[in-house]
């Protein structure tokens, strides 16, 4: 690791201001991506501001219509929370299958969403549940949050404070994990609610996206047969050492069908 200054955040707003004052400052949430990045000398921040000093950023609030999760809430907490399990069991399942138990004891939803790793699980739920991302500046519609690989709608000096998910009538998360890293080679979060069907896909493309063709087909007929003639263009998908774009295209459809099955 290169050297840097370290401080504990006094508040989310103060941390955001520090980011505005110093463009090379970084905030530390769970650190499950950021600390390995520092160790590999892929980042050289001037200062690291630790958000772990802010318990007010952690916690879960469930209402009749929504589940609000504070940015610093750990994956293990979401996975084990009885209210989340009752309101959106698919979301608890998603959180409980990120990484491994030790990673889930540190990793946070805010860190995962802000980092926007193309293979992270949470982005699929942001899209698949029509979430809203609350920041120190504003509320961002989840549908416009992911913009490029590792790029989001967050501006410099803007910090996520919480995420609110709409409670669906039914939902499922289907993940095809890379056997070594447990990251999603493809993950599909499907929900059925008052706004119709939502299908959020992660792992397949440079950034999470809604599978519009599948949503249209499933809104007309919520069955796996409805997906028989739906295709996805492999040109928009990733190819790497683990899977070709054509294989990922096949996985997206298979995971979507499994998610439909799970909701029937």
């Amino acid at each position: 690791m290169y050297g840097f200054e370290y401080s504990k955040a006094a508040s989310a707003e103060a941390a955001a201001q520090s980011l505005k004052d110093d463009e090379d400052a970084k905030v530390l949430a769970g650190g499950m991506t950021f600390i390995p990045t520092l160790k590999a000398r892929l980042a050289m921040p001037t200062q690291v501001i630790d958000l772990n000093s802010l318990p007010e950023l952690s916690g879960i609030t469930v209402t009749a219509d929504t589940v609000r999760i504070g940015a610093m809430t750990r994956h293990a907490h979401v996975a084990a929370d009885a209210d989340v399990k009752a309101a959106i069991p698919a979301l608890a399942y998603l959180a409980g299958n990120i990484g491994d138990p030790m990673v889930r004891n540190r990793g946070t939803i805010g860190g995962s969403v802000a980092n926007a790793d193309p293979a992270a699980c949470y982005p699929s739920a942001i899209l698949g549940l029509g979430a809203t991302v609350h920041t120190t500046e504003r509320d961002i519609d989840g549908d416009s949050f992911f913009t490029e690989m590792f790029e989001t709608a967050l501006q410099e000096g803007e910090l996520i404070k919480a995420v609110t998910f709409k409670r669906p009538d039914a939902a499922a998360y289907m993940k095809f994990p890379n056997p070594a890293s447990r990251y999603a080679m493809v993950g599909v979060f499907l929900s059925k609610g008052s706004d119709g069907i939502r299908v959020g896909v992660t792992g397949a493309a440079p950034y999470a996206f809604r599978f519009a063709a599948a949503e249209t087909a499933l809104n007309a007929d919520f069955s796996t047969q409805a997906l028989e003639n739906v295709t996805i263009d492999p040109d928009m998908l990733n190819t790497d050492m683990h899977a070709t774009a054509a294989y990922r295209a096949s996985l997206v459809l298979t995971m979507t069908k499994r998610a439909v099955d799970a909701c029937l």
């Binding site: 650190g31 499950m32 390995p36 772990n52 030790m102 004891n105 540190r106």
Partner: peptide, 11 residues
């Protein structure tokens, strides 16, 4: 349980 290779000492 956490992985101490992915935690800063100052934390």
């Amino acid at each position: 349980p956490i992985k101490s290779c992915t935690l800063l000492a100052v934390q």
